[in-house]
């Protein structure tokens, strides 16, 4: 089943065209990696997919779970099963991690007509996941990302991912800034999440993540386009030779 289909996507931010015709298809059960130089448009793609205000699609199409996303709000796309792992997770002072999680899960549930999650069930589930990600209890009581280290913020994204169980996870540099142990924890989280009925897109700069996560496809983004796709070997290639050959083309 196709979870994501992007065709000839052209999009702009502040009247500046950033995506110049992106094509990408992601099926259930797949893990994709997107690599590319700084400023090539990887984060922009994630924002456009999520419907972030200010990101304007000028031509092309996007389908999530088989339906066009035109006219869908940010919330509706999330309810349809899209999850963004943020490159720079933001702090929300005064709002407890648990509160964000509860509201997020409940909004998802109410979209499908389910009942709100009970406090006990929530705490139990959060505890399980937190343990896997080596978060302490105290951590959950803290305000969303406030005072978290860079690595903790990234692990917090994975915590949200695992609790929300989306269909399509688009993780923007969730592996950046992690020490080797944290990288393994995050990779374990991604592997635990990945299943035959969902898919993951990993935006990364480092081939090392691919040592821990089994990736089916690697795409290279240059200048707002996915210029080359291949298997794992493509990542090794890039690691060894950089992006020079793609830039020339």
């Amino acid at each position: 089943m196709k979870l994501l289909e992007v065709r000839n996507l052209v999009a702009e931010v502040d009247n500046k065209q950033i995506l110049n015709g992106v094509n990408l298809t992601v099926n259930a059960g797949e893990v994709h990696a997107v690599m590319g130089p700084n400023g090539s448009g990887k984060s922009t793609l994630s924002n456009v997919l999520a419907g972030r205000p200010g990101y304007e699609v000028t031509s092309g199409s996007m389908e999530l779970m088989g339906s066009p996303v035109n006219g869908m709000s940010v919330e509706e796309r999330a309810h349809a099963g899209l999850f963004l792992g943020f490159q720079y997770p933001i702090e929300i002072p005064g709002v407890a991690n648990m509160e964000l999680l509860k509201n997020a899960i409940d909004s998802q549930r109410s979209a499908t007509g389910e009942q709100e999650i009970g406090a006990r069930e929530l705490i139990q589930r959060v505890r399980e996941v937190a343990k896997e990600l080596q978060f302490s209890e105290e951590f959950l009581k803290r305000e969303v990302n406030v005072g978290f280290s860079g690595g903790e913020k990234k692990r917090n994204e994975i915590l949200q991912l695992m609790l929300m169980q989306p269909k399509l996870a688009f993780l923007d540099e969730t592996d950046s800034g992690l020490d080797i142990d944290a990288l393994q924890v995050v990779a374990r989280g991604i592997n635990a999440f990945s299943a035959s009925d969902n898919a993951v897109v990993l935006v990364t700069h480092y081939q090392r993540l691919l040592n821990h996560v089994d990736v089916d496809f690697v795409h290279i983004m240059v200048n707002g386009e996915l210029v080359k796709s291949g298997g794992k070997e493509l990542a090794l290639d890039v690691e060894a030779r950089g992006y020079a050959e793609f830039l020339r083309s």
């Binding site: 205000p53 940010v74 899209l82 702090e91 997020a104 909004s107 949200q160």
Partner: peptide
């Protein structure tokens, strides 16, 4: 607006 986007991306209605 970044905080707002994070919440909405997690499915939480903008008003909420």
């Amino acid at each position: 607006e970044d905080q707002l986007f994070l919440c909405r991306q997690r499915g939480i209605d903008g008003e909420k």
